[in-house]
């Protein structure tokens, strides 16, 4: 069944992903068996008991107890799936065991219609943000005067992360509800205004080069951040990109980004528009962020 479903499912590239797919396969087995079983019975009965073949109906009808066994069977399978798969799996999903030496934290702030990404940089602390500082070039409202913010890196519609790390995305929203979906990671979480929701997963596969932005854009095999919740007229194009990199590759990339924003860098004007640099280009939709 899993093989069958995989005809449609996207690649599976996270640690918890196979478990979700397997559960999906299991439930679809239950559905399949029930449906096919009843369908065979159904077709047989319609044929066998058509009026011309059975002119006088039987008042009693069926006398066997098979149906009760079927119902009990369904209930038992559901209990098994619930108790042994669904509930434990959810516990791990919302509250995973994290290796403290191998974590990677990033903030994602959704807005109509873009994903703002905020890395804490080498100091490991997110700089302060302030709603009054929001400008088109500083959509996070990052306060660069905060010492923690100096090395922070921001990006629009581009999310990078290292392979194999316990990724925590701290998800929030500036305006309305969005839903942060990474199909290949089997990840989806609503971003709810007023709440800061942590989201955990562990990528197990590096984004293939042809699926990375911007190379991917032409032949459409990108790894995308999809918005899954209706958020207004640009909902359909609220697309971002994410890239899973080898840890060393990621470190190099990150160092470049940090270098680009740190004040000791000669290019002084960069301090004003830190995020708009280097590889961290806005996606093709980024400029439409404010609507």
């Amino acid at each position: 069944m899993l093989g069958f479903l995989q005809n449609w499912l996207p690649v599976n590239a996270s640690e918890h992903g196979p478990m979700i797919d397997q559960m999906n396969a299991l439930v679809h087995w239950l559905m399949f068996v029930l449906f096919v079983g009843w369908a065979l019975y159904f077709v047989f009965v319609l044929f066998r008991f058509r009026a011309s073949a059975n002119p006088r109906a039987s008042y009693e009808g069926a006398k066997s107890h098979v149906s009760q066994y079927v119902e009990i069977g369904v209930a038992v399978v559901e209990v098994v799936i619930l108790v042994f798969f669904a509930i434990p799996a959810w516990a791990v999903w919302v509250d995973p065991v994290v290796d403290p030496d191998n974590t990677f934290e990033v903030r994602v702030v959704a807005e109509q219609f873009a994903w703002n990404v905020h890395y804490h940089g080498p100091d490991g602390v997110f700089g302060a943000t302030n709603i009054d500082l929001i400008t088109p070039t500083n959509p996070m409202g990052l306060d660069r005067t905060d010492p923690y913010a100096v090395d922070d890196v921001t990006a629009i519609n581009q999310l990078h992360m290292p392979l194999g790390a316990d990724v925590t995305v701290l998800l929030s929203s500036k305006d309305v509800i969005h839903s942060f979906a990474l199909p290949q990671m089997r990840v989806k979480q609503d971003s709810v205004p007023g709440l800061l929701i942590p989201l955990h997963f562990k990528p197990t596969m590096v984004t293939p080069p042809e699926s990375r932005f911007p190379a991917c854009n032409a032949d459409k095999t990108c790894w995308e951040i999809a918005c899954a919740q209706l958020c207004g007229l640009g909902h359909y194009r609220m697309r971002g990109f994410y890239t899973v990199m080898e840890p060393d590759e990621f470190d190099v990339w990150m160092a470049e980004q940090v270098a680009a924003v740190m004040p000791q860098q000669p290019a002084a004007e960069d301090a004003e528009a830190p995020a708009e640099d280097g590889d961290v280009q806005a996606g093709d939709d980024g400029d439409e962020g404010e609507h």
Partner: peptide, 11 residues
């Protein structure tokens, strides 16, 4: 579904 069993079904 079981109600169908033993019926004299008119379509």
């Amino acid at each position: 579904l079981i109600s169908l069993w033993g019926g004299s079904i008119r379509f």
